[in-house]
Design a protein around this nucleic acid. Structure first.
Lengths: 212, 212
DNA sequence: ATTGACATACGTACCAGTTCGTACATTTTG
DNA sequence: CAAAATGTACGAACTGGTACGTATGTCAAT
């Protein structure tokens, strides 16, 4: 009677897919697309390799699903910042801190983006889902910059995408190049004190640039 | 008689190795370590797969040789800047421009570094050759910063490694993340006007940061 | 409520192509 | 001639993908 008796299997498609994606994210982000092994993923899954192909069709299909899932996760986090009621400078500091903390907290995501770049973003280009995101950040920055300029807090008329790039570059690089950088300069970029210093540094640099 | 008659083969170990390394650099930088194919490299070479193993022992050995060669190439370029007779601010601008132009001109190198980071810099760590480089940049920056502070041109006492990271991050990111960035924001980062703007931007930002 | 039919979800074993690496033979060079 | 350099052909293991069979859930008709 007990429905899960003995070796009783329980169909749970959603959990199975989620489980596969979780494991696959880890595998691909540590070994790359070509380096990631479908068998290795299957082994660490509650289910079997058959299910990977059942749900995702191919290795590339799985990889794309992993990528989309990672991007989708950010959107939810980054959306609900209430920046429009803050002073321009403060708003920008909050936005920068958020980006900084996000990259620091999601090395998997950073690595996947690096991997995508090695593949010339070929998979991202084929996915409408992904391209639609991120654009909102630019509008947010544009708003802050405009307000800052009209209030004479910012002296420089800067391109929002350029500013976004400057912020992203610093936050992303700290995580993406952590290992080579650490290996060359014997510096651990994940130390608490270093993190604090860098978080302030990038904000000061960007705001200083806009004020000049 | 004629030494290279008919199908006459000419032994030229140095050129053979160099040829292999050239092709391998291209292969690994576009496909990664796992994605790069030894057979594909061999085919595009003047020689055969046998020679790859003769000279480099294994796929990983070849990859490491590619990596070391790339790093060695930079050192020669970056060494002979005469910065000590320039004013601090000007010296820093020249150094930043050089870094910027270097990354822009050597996407292969940038990609290899990205790939190394995906592998947690495992190969770099095993190579003394590579670690010894790059350290000179820090001494150069340290010198500039000291002079700048004592001349009251720079108001801020900054860590040279942090400054190097800020510069590297921006220059590196522009190239390493060119594809995903371009795909999301529909912006071509290799346009001449954009390059010019960004080169000035990073210099202004860093110098502004130090002057604040 | 029970049965049967059908779609969905899942597991095992296996195959076929790829890919790193090598054995063996040969040529060049000093 | 010996050592270094090179070419050809092949093997063994790995790896993405699949054929085949089984279990689970759903729903309509009894």
């Amino acid at each position: 009677m007990a429905s899960k008796a003995e070796n009783g299997r329980k169909n749970d498609p959603q959990r199975t897919q989620e489980n596969i994606l979780e494991v696959a994210t880890e595998e691909f982000s540590t070994h790359g697309l070509a380096g990631g092994r479908v068998d290795a993923i299957a082994e660490r899954t509650r289910t079997s390799k058959r299910m990977i192909y059942y749900y995702f069709g191919s290795k590339e299909g799985l990889y794309l699903a992993v990528l989309e899932r990672s991007y989708r996760k950010i959107r939810t986090l980054e959306a609900d910042l209430q920046l429009s009621n803050l002073e321009p400078e403060e708003a920008l500091r909050v936005l920068i801190s958020t980006t900084f903390d996000h990259d620091e907290a999601h090395p998997d995501f950073v690595r996947l983006v690096s991997i995508e770049n090695i593949h010339h973003a070929a998979h991202m280009l084929r996915s409408e889902a992904i391209r639609d995101l991120n654009v909102s950040v630019i509008e947010t920055i544009a708003g802050i910059l405009e307000r800052g300029v009209s209030q004479r807090v910012f002296m420089r008329q800067a391109d929002p995408i350029d500013i976004h790039m400057m912020i992203s570059a610093f936050c992303f690089f700290r995580v993406s190049n952590r290992y080579t950088f650490g290996s060359i300069f014997r510096r651990d970029l994940s130390e608490a004190a270093t993190i604090e210093r860098h978080r302030t540094m990038i904000a000061d640099a960007v705001i200083g640039y806009l004020k000049a």
